Amino acid sequence: MVVLDYGSGNLRSAVRAVERAGARVSLTSDFETALHADGLVVPGVGAYAACMAGLREIKGDRLIGRRLAGGRPVLGICVGMQVLFARGVEHGVETEGCDEWPGVVERLQAPVVPHMGWNTVEVAEGSTLFAGLADERFYFVHSYGVREWSLVTNDRTTAPRVTWAEHGGDRFVAAVENGPLTATQFHPEKSGDAGAALLRNWVATLQRG
């Protein structure tokens, strides 16, 4: 298992959390090591444009695409989820993302932004990631999100399972399960026992694969 090191923060906490979920973890930016790992975790904090610049510097966008083409699992966290979408718009600046999913990351339309703290989620039917966790709360820290989901199906054989959350009356995508590509807007590594259980669920899918 690899946690991808592309200059975005919270890397050590992500490594520790995935290790506690039962995986042996390397923190690396090496393309070949990350390409062939059983699983790849892509954390992310800060600005969308900065995260995309860091990813492109180590060919992380190509790495993600190559892994998914081969059916190799990827987990994106927070901005690491956002960059999987087609584009992000922050402060009037539009940045191209990895375009694994259609959609735009934009500022939340809520009275109080950022959205910071614990929140429940509307778990997608049939979710593996949230097995046993439907009533739990997870920790969010973000001002931007994906507020519309348009993809019904794609070449990953099954329709994506999309989990939603709400802040200040604004709904946004909280997590996606789409074949080998999984992502969460919240931080499982900061979400206590519920986050730990969610990471164990994801690691277990790698072991079954």
Score class of each variant (00 low, 15 high):
Ala23Glu: 14
Gly44Gln: 01
Leu199Tyr: 10
Trp164Ile: 07
Ala47Thr: 05
Val89Ala: 13
Met1Glu: 00
Gly132Ser: 09
Val173Gln: 10
Gly71Tyr: 09
Pro111Asp: 10
Phe172Pro: 06
Leu55Val: 03
Met81Pro: 05
Gly88Ile: 08
Arg20Thr: 04
Arg161Cys: 07
Gly7Met: 06
Glu136Met: 08
Leu206Ser: 07
Ile77Phe: 10
His187Asn: 11
Glu189Trp: 07
Gly117Arg: 02
Met116Asp: 04
Ala165Lys: 10
Glu136Asn: 11
Trp101Thr: 01
Ser26Glu: 15
Phe138Ile: 11
Val203Asn: 04
Met1Lys: 00
Asn119Trp: 03
Trp202Gln: 04
Thr182Trp: 15
Trp118Thr: 07
Glu90Arg: 07
Arg200Ser: 14
Gln207Asp: 15
Pro102Asn: 06
Tyr6His: 06
Leu198His: 08
Gly54Gln: 03
Glu166Phe: 05
Leu199Pro: 09
Cys51Thr: 01
Arg147Met: 09
His91Phe: 15
Met81Ile: 08
Arg156Asn: 12
Gly76Leu: 06
Ala204Thr: 11
Ala47Leu: 06
Trp149Phe: 08
Leu40Ala: 05
His142Trp: 05
Val112His: 13
Leu4Ala: 03
Met1Asn: 00
Thr163Cys: 08
Glu57Met: 06
Ala14Asn: 15
His142Tyr: 01
Asp170Ile: 09
Asp155Met: 03
Glu125Leu: 04
Gly169Gln: 12
Gln109Phe: 04
His91Cys: 11
Thr182His: 13
Leu63Asp: 09
Phe138His: 12
Val121Gln: 05
Pro180Lys: 12
Gly192His: 09
Leu206Gln: 13
Asp61Gly: 14
Val74Ser: 05
Asp155Val: 13
Ala174Arg: 04
His167Met: 06
Arg24Ser: 13
Phe130Lys: 02
Asn10Ala: 06
Lys190Val: 08
Ala34Met: 06
Ser143Lys: 03
Gly145Tyr: 07
Thr163Asn: 06
Val89Glu: 15
Glu136Leu: 00
Gly76Tyr: 02
Ser8Val: 14
Gly132Ala: 02
Gly195Lys: 10
Trp149Tyr: 06
Pro73Thr: 13
Leu68Tyr: 08
Ala21Asp: 01
Phe140Asn: 02
Ala14Asp: 02
Glu122Asn: 12
Val3Glu: 05
Glu19His: 04
Val41Ala: 01
Thr33Leu: 11
Asp155Pro: 00
Asn119Lys: 04
Val173Leu: 14
Ser26Lys: 14
Glu19Ser: 12
Arg87Val: 01
Ala204Ser: 15
Arg72Ile: 12
Ala17Met: 10
Val42Cys: 00
Glu57Tyr: 03
Leu198Trp: 08
Thr120Leu: 11
Pro160Ser: 03
Leu40Pro: 09
Asn201Gln: 08
Gly169Phe: 11
Pro43Lys: 06
Glu106His: 05
Gly46Cys: 11
Pro114Ile: 07
Pro73Trp: 11
Ala53Lys: 15
Arg200Pro: 05
Ala174Pro: 04
Glu125Gly: 08
Arg62Gly: 13
Ala17Ser: 15
Asp30Ile: 05
Glu148Met: 08
Arg66Cys: 11
Thr163Ser: 11
Pro111Phe: 12
Leu63His: 08
Thr33Arg: 13
Ala21Leu: 00
Ala159Gly: 10
Leu4Asp: 04
Gly80Arg: 07
Glu189Asp: 12
Val42Thr: 05
Cys78Met: 09
Leu181Ile: 13
Ser143Leu: 01
Ser143Met: 01
Ala49His: 13
Leu181Asn: 09
Arg200Trp: 10
Thr28Gln: 10
Val41Ser: 00
Phe186Met: 06
